Simulated assay, not measured.
Amino acid sequence: MNDSMINLTIWQLAAAYLFVALLLALVRWRKIPREKEIIIATLRMTIQLLLVGYVLMYLFENPHPLFTAVVVLLMIGFAIFNIYKRVRGHLSKRLKRAVMTAMAAGSLASLLYFNFVVIQFSPWYDPRYFIPIAGMIIGNSMTGVSLGVQTLIDGMKEQKREVVAALMLGASPKAASRKIKNRAFDAAILPTVNQMVGMGIVFLPGMMTGQILAGADPVSAIEYQIAILLGIIGAVSLSVISFVQLGYKVFFNERQQLVRGND
Rank of each mutant, 00 (worst) to 15 (best):
S177I: 02
F203L: 04
Q211K: 12
M45G: 14
F130C: 00
M196V: 08
G106K: 04
M45E: 07
T192Q: 15
Y54Q: 11
I47K: 06
A98M: 09
I133Q: 09
W11M: 09
K249G: 03
P191Q: 03
S146R: 04
G53T: 07
I241G: 01
V236L: 01
N182W: 03
S220E: 13
A166G: 15
A98K: 02
L8R: 06
Y125N: 12
S146E: 07
F252Y: 11
V259T: 14
V27A: 03
S239M: 04
L43Y: 04
Q159C: 00
V145A: 08
F19C: 11
M199L: 15
L50P: 02
V99T: 13
V99F: 12
L91F: 12
A134G: 14
N2Q: 08
L18P: 02
A216Y: 09
I6N: 11
F121T: 10
L152R: 11
R44C: 11
R28I: 09
Q195A: 15
H90N: 13
I138D: 12
K31M: 06
R86Y: 02
K96I: 00
D154H: 04
V164M: 10
I222K: 01
H64Q: 09
A15L: 15
I232A: 03
H64P: 04
A235Q: 00
V193R: 12
L112P: 10
V71W: 05
I32P: 04
F78L: 14
L213H: 09
R34N: 10
N253Q: 02
N194P: 03
S177G: 07
A104Y: 12
L229D: 02
S237D: 01
A15R: 06
R255A: 13
I10R: 14
F19K: 00
Q150E: 15
N262D: 15
V193D: 07
S122K: 10
P63T: 10
Q195E: 07
E223F: 01
A214Y: 06
V71M: 13
I180N: 08
E61C: 00
L258N: 10
I83C: 08
L24F: 13
T209N: 10
A15C: 06
S92C: 10
V240T: 09
V259M: 08
H64F: 05
T192G: 11
M208S: 02
G261R: 03
V20G: 02
G170M: 06
P218A: 05
T9Q: 11
N262R: 01
I232V: 14
I138R: 10
V72F: 12
N62G: 02
I6Q: 13
S141P: 02
M156L: 14
L24N: 12
